[in-house]
Design a binder for these strands. Structure first.
Length: 828
RNA sequence: GCGGAUGUGGUGAAAUUGGUAGACACGCCAGACUUAGGAUCUGGUGCCGUAAGGUGUGAAGGUUCAAGUCCUUUCAUCCGCACCA
C-alpha cells in the first residue's frame, strides 16, 4: 500500500464532513474545552500565517477530543471592512458578492487542510443576523451611557476617506493603507472605554501566566496610567485684562510635583482654547498667529522633529512662590493628554530643557542628586560658564524649595500634593493615555449605527423589533464620499419616537466592534441560533476561551476591545465573568529568506500549491515541527520535503503493525534490550505529548519524540512492540497529521486507538543505569551500574573508569548525583 | 529615550528543577541497492587535531564540585511604545 496524500486526505475529509465529526454537543454536564483561533478577514485566499494559526488550534482541538472533552472549535469570518469596499472600487464589483465569494473559497481551503472546525456555528460578521444582534447591544450600550456622540479633532485618512481610532494610527499613518493621517474636525460616536481604564489595567493581573508577558506590558503601556497633581494657574491682573477677562486661569497636570519650585515657564498646546481665543481676537501679532497656525497644521511626524514655540505675552502666578511665570505656546504640548497645558521645569525635564535652551528661558535647579561622587551637587551637569547642559531627571534632595529643602524628592511628592489639597489649590489626579474609542466610519461596508436623527427628538434609537438596520443592496461604490449618505432613499425614515420624517445615521461601525464579541456568538447552537445571540446557559458553559491563538499584531486593538466588551456585557447582565480569554498563545510570523512573507517581496508560499504537491498533513507537520509556535518560523523547502518523507515512512512502516482491536499486552521483562528501549521511547513520546498540550506548547519537541520512537522501533523487530508502538504513536500524531493517522488507525485498529493513552510505567524501570563520570566537572566517560548499587560501589566504579585521568593525583571530593553522574574532584 | 524579547553547529532547533551541550530534523560526506536517481536503506557529521587530546552556547567577569541555565557588566539583533508633562 503506497502513501497517496490526495486520496487519503479527500477520503477522510469527506468522512468527517458526512459524520459531523467535529460538532460540539449541547450537554452541559460534560467537561468542555473552547479552542479558538482568531477568525480571518476574507481577503480571498489563505496565507501561511493563517495556516499556522489554524494548525495550532486544530492540534489543541483534536487532542482534547481524544481526551473525551466536549470541544468547541469554531471558525467564522470578520467580513466587514474597507478592503471589501476597496476591492469593489477597483474591480467595479459588489462588496457583498466579493466578500461571500471569498468566504466560499476560503471555507474550501479550510476543509482541504483537514481543520476540525464546527460547521454549524460558522458565520460571517456581515450576516444580517449578526448585525441584528450587534445593533441590539449597541442600543443597550447607548442607554447605559457607554456610547456617545461628540465633535472632535479626528484622525482622518484621506485615502480611505474615513476617520480612524487612535489605535489605528501607526507612526502617524493609516494602519491599513499607510497614508499619512490628517486632523479633521467632525462628529463621531465614541465608546466610553476610558470608564473601564482602571479595570482593564487592574485585571491584567488576572491574566498573568495565561497571557504572554509582552502582550500584558503592551496593554499596560497603552492604558498608560500615571498619578500626579492637577492644579490651576491664575493669570495676573494685567494678563487677565489683556484677555478681555474671558479667562482667569487654566489647569495643568504634572507627575513631578516635587519640581514645582523649579517652574520657570508654562506651555499651552497650539490647539488650546486660550490660544484659539487670542488668535481669533487679534490679541497676537500676525507673525505669532502665523507661527501658531504652522504648529497646528504640521503633521504629527514633523511636529516631533524639533521643539518650537512662541511667547503669548501673558503671565500666570506661581501657586506657591507667587512669582510671575510667562505663558508660551509649544508644539510639544499635546491637546488631547491631560488638559493640554503643562508647567515647565527645564532643570529636571528633558523636553522643558530643550525648549528653554532654544528660547533662553531660565533654568532653576531644585533637585540635587545623591550621587556620592558628586560633591558639588549639580556641578557635573554644568559647563564652563556654570550653565546646565542637560536636565537632571533622577531622584535627589530638594533644594531651593522653601520648607521642602532637604527632603527626598520622591517623598516630597506626597507632601507637596498634600499642601495643594490642604489649601484647596490643587488635587491628586490620575491620568490615562487611553482615550475613548471612536467607532464611526464614513464607509458603506460595515454595520450601520442603528440611530435616527429627528429634528424634534434629537438622536433616537431604532426600535429593537425593527432590527437589523441593514445595508441597501443597490449601491454604487465610487470611493468618493459616504455611499449611504449619497443613496437616494436609504437614510430617509420616520422617527421611531414621534413618527415625523427623520434621517438615519449614515456612519457605519468600526469592524473591531464585530470582533469584540464574536467569541460569544459561537456559544449559541442550532436550537437558538436565529432567536438570540446566545443564552446565559451557553455562555456560562463555554466561556472563557481555554486557548485563544492568534497573531501578536492584535495585542492592543482587538484584545483590548474584546476585554472591554466583556466587561460591558457583564455590566449589562449578559454574563458573569471579567475576562474572555483564559490562555492566549501568540504565534510567531512565518518568514522566508529571513523576511516576513509578502506579495511585494515575492517570497510567499501558496498553501494551495503546497497542499496540491505534498498534502495537508505535510504542511501541518512542517509548520508544527520547524519551530515552537511562539517563535518565528523560517520557511524551508527541503524541510518540507523532510516532513513529507517522514509521513511516508510513518505510513509505510505501519505495515509492521498487526491489525488488532486492543493494544497488545507485553511481558516487558522477556524483551531484548532493543525492544525495551523502543517501548521506553514510545512512552516517553506519550509523556512529552501530555506536557506539550498542557504546559509547554512546543509541538516541535513532541514530534521529535515521536521520531525518536520511530527510530527505536525500527531498530528492533518484535511484532507486538511494533503494534503497541503504532497504537500509541498514531494517537499522538493524530492532532498533527490527522488524515494519515485516521487512515492507519482505521486499517489497523478500527479507529479504537484515537483516545487517551495510558502510560505503562513498567517501561521506565531499568535494571541498570548509565551514569556520566566527570573529573573536575569535565565529562570524561560513563559507567553502567546496577539500579540498586550503593553510593560507595558507584564511586569506586567511577574511579576505576576514570583512572586514566586521576592517576596519582589527590582526590579532594567525590560527588554522586543519583541517576545523573559522578564527579571526582582532584588536585594538582 | 522607555518597555519587552532573542543571541547555541553550515541551517531550523533540543537541553523541564544548575548535572554527559547540540536531541530531532535539514544540509553535507561515505557506502549499499539500482540502467538511472532529486527514490529508498545503512553509517558519519560542532570546531582544531592523524591521534591522544584540546576547545566550544554573542563578549568579559563572578558564584559553584559542576553554568547554555544563577549573578554583574557589556555588545548585537528584533519587536512594541514614543514629546503622555
Amino acid at each position: 500500500m503506497e502513501y497517496n496524500a490526495q486520496n487519503i486526505e479527500t477520503k477522510w475529509q469527506k468522512y468527517w464532513d458526512e459524520n459531523g465529526s467535529f460538532e460540539p454537543v449541547e450537554d452541559f454536564s460534560l467537561e468542555k474545552k473552547y479552542i479558538l483561533s482568531m477568525f480571518p478577514f476574507p481577503s480571498g485566499r489563505l496565507h501561511m500565517g493563517h495556516v499556522r494559526n489554524y494548525t495550532i488550534s486544530d492540534a489543541f482541538a483534536r487532542y482534547y477530543r481524544q481526551q473525551k472533552f466536549n470541544v468547541l472549535h469554531p471558525i467564522g469570518f470578520d467580513s466587514f471592512g474597507m478592503p471589501a469596499e476597496n476591492a469593489a472600487i477597483k474591480n467595479n464589483a459588489d462588496p457583498k458578492e466579493w466578500t461571500y465569494d471569498n468566504i466560499d473559497y476560503m471555507t474550501k481551503e479550510f476543509a482541504t487542510l483537514g481543520l476540525s472546525f464546527s460547521k454549524e456555528r460558522n458565520f460571517a460578521t456581515s450576516d444580517e443576523l449578526y448585525t441584528k444582534f450587534e445593533q441590539g447591544f449597541i442600543i443597550d450600550m447607548y442607554e447605559k451611557g457607554l456610547l456617545y456622540r461628540e465633535k472632535g479633532f479626528l484622525n482622518w485618512c484621506p485615502h480611505d476617506q474615513t476617520v480612524l481610532a487612535n489605535e489605528q494610527v501607526i507612526d502617524g499613518c493609516c494602519w491599513r493603507c499607510d497614508t499619512p493621517i490628517v486632523k479633521k474636525d467632525m462628529n463621531q460616536y465614541y465608546f466610553k472605554i476610558t470608564q473601564y481604564a482602571d479595570e482593564l489595567l487592574e485585571d491584567l493581573k488576572k491574566l498573568e501566566g495565561g497571557w504572554p508577558k509582552q502582550v500584558l506590558t503592551m496593554q499596560e503601556n497603552w492604558i498608560g496610567k500615571s498619578n500626579g497633581l492637577e492644579f490651576d494657574l491664575y493669570f495676573d491682573d494685567e494678563s487677565k485684562a489683556k484677555l478681555n477677562d474671558k479667562f482667569s486661569k487654566f489647569d495643568v497636570f504634572t507627575t513631578r510635583p516635587d519640581t514645582i519650585y523649579g517652574v520657570s515657564y508654562t506651555a499651552l498646546a497650539p490647539e488650546h482654547p486660550i490660544v484659539a481665543y487670542m488668535c481669533e481676537n487679534n490679541l497676537l501679532d500676525s507673525h505669532t498667529i502665523y507661527q501658531i497656525d504652522a504648529m497646528k497644521n504640521a503633521s504629527s511626524i514633523d511636529r516631533q522633529k524639533e521643539k518650537s514655540g512662541v511667547a503669548l505675552g501673558v503671565n500666570v502666578i506661581h501657586p506657591l512662590t507667587k512669582k510671575l511665570v510667562p505663558v508660551w505656546v509649544a508644539n510639544f504640548v499635546l491637546m488631547d493628554y491631560g488638559s493640554g497645558a503643562v508647567m515647565a521645569v527645564p532643570a529636571h525635564d528633558d523636553r522643558d530643557y530643550d525648549f528653554a535652551k532654544k528660547y533662553d528661558l531660565p533654568i532653576n535647579a531644585v533637585i540635587e542628586p545623591y550621587d556620592t561622587d558628586l560633591t558639588k551637587g549639580l556641578e557635573y551637569l554644568k559647563d564652563i560658564d556654570g550653565n546646565l547642559y542637560m536636565a537632571y531627571t533622577g531622584v535627589g534632595k530638594l533644594i531651593n524649595s522653601a520648607e521642602f529643602d532637604g527632603i527626598d524628592s520622591n517623598e516630597s511628592k506626597e507632601k507637596i500634593i498634600e499642601l495643594f489639597e490642604n489649601n484647596g489649590i490643587g488635587k491628586k489626579t490620575t491620568n490615562y493615555k487611553l482615550k475613548d474609542w471612536g467607532v464611526s466610519r464614513q464607509r458603506y461596508w460595515g454595520a450601520p449605527i442603528p440611530f435616527v436623527h429627528c429634528e424634534s427628538c434629537g438622536i433616537v434609537m431604532e426600535k429593537k423589533e425593527n432590527l437589523p438596520v441593514a445595508l441597501p443592496a443597490d449601491i454604487k461604490i465610487t470611493g468618493e464620499g459616504n455611499p449611504l449618505e449619497k443613496h437616494p432613499t436609504w437614510k430617509h425614515c420616520s422617527c421611531p419616537k414621534c413618527g415625523q420624517d427623520a434621517v438615519r445615521e449614515t456612519d457605519t461601525m468600526d469592524t473591531f466592534v464585530e470582533s469584540s464579541w464574536y467569541f460569544l456568538r459561537y456559544c449559541a447552537s442550532k436550537t437558538n441560533w436565529e432567536k438570540e445571540a446566545f443564552s446565559d446557559e451557553q455562555i456560562k458553559y463555554w466561556m472563557g476561551v481555554d486557548h485563544y491563538i492568534g497573531g501578536i499584531e492584535h495585542a492592543i486593538l482587538h484584545l483590548l476591545y474584546a476585554r472591554f466588551f466583556t466587561k460591558v456585557f457583564r455590566d449589562l447582565g449578559y454574563l458573569e465573568f471579567d475576562e474572555p480569554f483564559d490562555k492566549l498563545l501568540t504565534q510567531g510570523m512565518v518568514l522566508k529568506d529571513g523576511a516576513k512573507m509578502s506579495k511585494s517581496k515575492g517570497n510567499t508560499v501558496d498553501p494551495d500549491e503546497l497542499i496540491a504537491k505534498y498534502g495537508a498533513d505535510t504542511a501541518r507537520l512542517f509548520i508544527l515541527f520547524a519551530a515552537p509556535p511562539t517563535q518565528e518560523l523560517e520557511w524551508n523547502d527541503s524541510g518540507v520535503e523532510g516532513s513529507y518523507r517522514f509521513i511516508k515512512r510513518f505510513f509505510d512502516r505501519s505495515a509492521n503493525s498487526a491489525s488488532v482491536d486492543a493494544k497488545p499486552i507485553i511481558d516487558h521483562n522477556s524483551l531484548t534490550k532493543d525492544e525495551k528501549f523502543a517501548r521506553k521511547k514510545v512512552y516517553e513520546a506519550l509523556k512529552r505529548a501530555e506536557e506539550v498540550y498542557t504546559e509547554r506548547y512546543t509541538f516541535n519537541t513532541m514530534i521529535a519524540g515521536v521520531m525518536e520512537a520511530m527510530n527505536a522501533l525500527n531498530a528492533q523487530s518484535n511484532a507486538d512492540v511494533w503494534t503497541e508502538g503504532y497504537w500509541i504513536l498514531t494517537s499522538i500524531m493524530e492532532p498533527v497529521i490527522p488524515h494519515t493517522c485516521w487512515e492507519i488507525s482505521k486499517e489497523k485498529f478500527g479507529l479504537k486507538n484515537l483516545e487517551k493513552q495510558e502510560i505503562m510505567q513498567e517501561v521506565f524501570v531499568e535494571d541498570s543505569i548509565t551514569l556520566g563520570v566527570s573529573i573536575n566537572g569535565k565529562a570524561r566517560t560513563e559507567i553502567e551500574v546496577a539500579k540498586d548499587a550503593t553510593k560507595d560501589e558507584i564511586i569506586s566504579l567511577a574511579k576505576e573508569a576514570g583512572a586514566k585521568w586521576i592517576e596519582a593525583k589527590e582526590i579532594v571530593k567525590e560527588i554522586y548525583v543519583p541517576n545523573k553522574l559522578v564527579n571526582i574532584v582532584i588536585k594538582g
